[in-house]
Amino acid sequence: MLIKLLIVLFLILLITIGILMLTHLDRPFFMFSQSNLPFVQKTMKITAYLLLLTSLMGIIILIWAPLSWNLLTLVLGSVITGAFALLISRAS
């Protein structure tokens, strides 16, 4: 039961990050200004959609699939955010 609660918290975190990225497309993000760096804006948009898709998939897995399948959600969410961090670090 505790693992399901932690998975729910992880999914809430993924949804929050995805929504934050989509709502901050036209605002400065860290030290980047999106008007000067369209690559950052495009990367944020793709990452946000992937995180929201992963969250939706995670909710479906949490409800209908065995508990061990939640590892897919954890790995996928971590890889997406890690790839975003690597791409952003190369853009500076």
Rank of each mutant, 00 (worst) to 15 (best):
D26G: 06
R27N: 15
T73A: 03
I60L: 15
L86E: 05
F29S: 04
P66I: 03
I15S: 04
R90W: 11
L13M: 15
A85N: 06
A91N: 03
M21Y: 06
M57P: 00
I12H: 03
G18H: 09
I63P: 03
N70M: 15
I88S: 11
D26F: 14
A65S: 13
T23V: 14
L76V: 14
Q41I: 02
P66C: 02
L37A: 02
L37M: 05
L6E: 12
F30E: 02
T23C: 06
W69P: 01
L62N: 09
I15C: 09
I88R: 14
I12K: 10
Q41F: 04
S89D: 07
F29C: 00
D26R: 14
I80Y: 01
I3C: 10
L86T: 10
L11T: 06
D26M: 12
I3Y: 14
L53R: 00
P28K: 13
L37P: 00
A91T: 12
A48I: 06
K4C: 05
I19A: 11
F84H: 07
L67T: 05
M31V: 06
I12Q: 07
L72S: 12
L74P: 00
I61R: 14
I19V: 13
H24Y: 08
L25G: 06
I80E: 00
T47N: 11
T54L: 15
S78P: 04
I12M: 11
L37Y: 03
L6P: 00
M31L: 07
L86D: 05
L37G: 00
T54S: 12
T81A: 08
R90Y: 09
I7Y: 00
W69A: 13
Q41V: 03
I19E: 09
S92A: 09
F30Q: 01
I12L: 15
A91R: 08
A91V: 14
P66N: 12
L14S: 11
T43P: 01
F30K: 03
A91W: 04
T43K: 04
L20W: 07
K4M: 08
K4W: 07
L6R: 11
F30S: 01
F30T: 01
L25A: 05
K42H: 04
L52K: 04
P38E: 09
T23A: 08
I60V: 15
Q41E: 02
S55K: 11
I17M: 07
L50K: 08
I3A: 10
M1V: 05
A48D: 04
N70Q: 14
L37Q: 08
A48Y: 00
L5V: 12
F10C: 00
T54E: 05
I7N: 02
